[in-house]
C-alpha cells in the first residue's frame, strides 16, 4: 500500500510517501511496524494523540482495519481556514 506523510510527520520521517508491504491488519499494527524500523519513525509516531490518520482519503482511526485499503496517510491535526 502507499503510505503518505504530511507536515511535520513528513519532515520528521524525511519523505512524503513510500510503498510498504505489510502484514498488519490494523492502522495500529502498521504504526508498530513503522516504529520498529528506525528512530525517525519512532520519533514521528511517539505520540499518537498528536496524529491523525486517513484511509483512502477519508479520516479514520488507529484501530481501523486495513483490509482493502490502498492508501494510508498520517498527519498532525489539520489547520485549515
Amino acid at each position: 500500500m502507499d503510505v503518505l506523510y504530511f507536515a511535520w510527520v513528513r519532515e520528521r520521517i524525511g519523505l512524503p510517501r513510500e510503498r510498504i508491504e505489510t502484514s498488519a491488519t490494523t492502522v495500529a499494527g502498521l504504526v508498530e511496524e513503522l516504529r520498529a524500523r528506525e528512530d525517525r519513525y519512532a520519533a514521528a509516531f511517539a505520540d499518537l494523540s498528536a496524529l491523525r490518520v486517513a484511509l483512502d482519503q477519508e479520516l479514520s482511526s488507529f484501530d481501523a482495519s486495513l483490509q482493502g485499503v490502498r492508501e494510508v496517510a498520517f498527519f498532525p491535526p489539520m489547520t485549515g481556514g
Binding site: A7, W8, A54, F75, P77, M78, T79, G80, G81
Partner: peptide, 19 residues
C-alpha cells in the same frame, strides 16, 4: 479549520519555521 487537510507553517525572519 479542523476537517480539511491543510497544514500551515510560519516562516519567520529569524530563519526559524513553526508548524
Amino acid at each position: 479549520k479542523s476537517r480539511a487537510p491543510f497544514w500551515k507553517k510560519e516562516i519567520l525572519d529569524s530563519g526559524t519555521t513553526d508548524w
